[in-house]
């Protein structure tokens, strides 16, 4: 564990150096991802000019949920972006061997190769929106709640990672699973708004099957005093652990399949 942390620190330092070399490009990426998120907020703003509330949720509350959604998403985006490349081309081009040739965990090896700083666009906008809406809503948080907030954010990121890992691992069998991953990743759009606006089958899917609901709306509603501690916070935590176990099992099986078939 200590070795992995020290390794990751080395990678981080290296990528930061590269980042400093290409400052302008980093800024561009950051602005890009930031603008996308801001256009979503502008959209909500235009809508709330027409209606007093959305299904009982005020503009500020919706902004809180929307902003909350960006943070786990950005965190996962920052750390595990290479999973997209796995789904798209690593197996197709026969480049997976290298991850099996070093005495470190192959998943760590794969993921540590890319740190996607563009994700700060999502992270910064998300954090700004959460803080802005909290001030507007006059939400005060205790120290314990800050800890719970961090717990749910990390859990949410783990859920994102697990879903990506699961569908990216399918590439061990079908070579290219990029579009399948993209399709399932698209489901995360549902979690940006209150789940109550959706029909029952969709709610079921994004709560129990592809659990994006736990990456934003469910934990966020706890902090808005609209949900209880157990389902919202511990439910999120449990969903994260469970999804990671399932995804990691599939990943391990994928490697096994790779070991028996080669490239």
């Amino acid at each position: 564990m200590k070795r992995y942390l020290s390794l990751y620190k080395t990678f981080l330092a290296q990528y930061l150096k590269i980042l400093m070399e290409y400052r302008i490009d980093f800024l561009i990426g950051l602005i890009g991802f930031g603008i996308i998120q801001l256009s979503g907020i502008a959209f909500l703003y235009l809508i709330f000019a027409e209606i007093p509330n959305l299904n009982g949720w005020s503009f500020e509350q919706i902004v809180f949920i929307y902003g909350f959604a960006q943070i786990p998403r950005g965190l996962d985006h920052l750390i595990t972006d290479n999973l997209w490349i796995l789904s798209k081309s690593i197996i197709v081009k026969g480049q997976f061997d290298r991850y099996l040739l070093r005495p470190i965990n192959p998943l760590f090896h794969l993921v540590s190769e890319v740190i996607q700083f563009d994700a700060f666009g999502e992270l910064l906008v998300g954090i700004a929106l959460v803080i802005w809406s909290m001030i507007k809503l006059k939400i005060t948080v205790s120290f314990l709640q800050i800890l719970l907030f961090i717990l749910t954010i990390i859990s949410g990121a783990v859920i994102y990672t697990s879903i990506k890992l699961l569908f990216a691992s399918l590439s061990f069998w079908i070579k290219n699973s990029h579009e399948i991953l993209w399709m399932n990743y698209s489901l995360s759009d549902f979690s940006k708004y209150p789940l109550s606006i959706y029909s029952k089958p969709i709610r079921t899917i994004i709560t129990y099957i592809i659990p994006f609901g736990f990456t934003a709306f469910i934990p966020a509603s706890y902090f808005l005093n609209k949900g209880n501690l157990y389902t919202c916070v511990f439910g999120t935590f449990a969903a994260a652990i469970l999804s990671f176990i399932i995804a990691y099992t599939i990943w391990l099986n994928g490697i096994k399949a790779y070991e028996s078939s080669g490239s």
Binding site: D97, L100, L101, K256, E259, S260, G262
Partner: peptide
């Protein structure tokens, strides 16, 4: 080679 390096079973 891949068997000897552990990539293939």
């Amino acid at each position: 080679i891949k068997i000897m390096t552990g990539i293939l079973t």
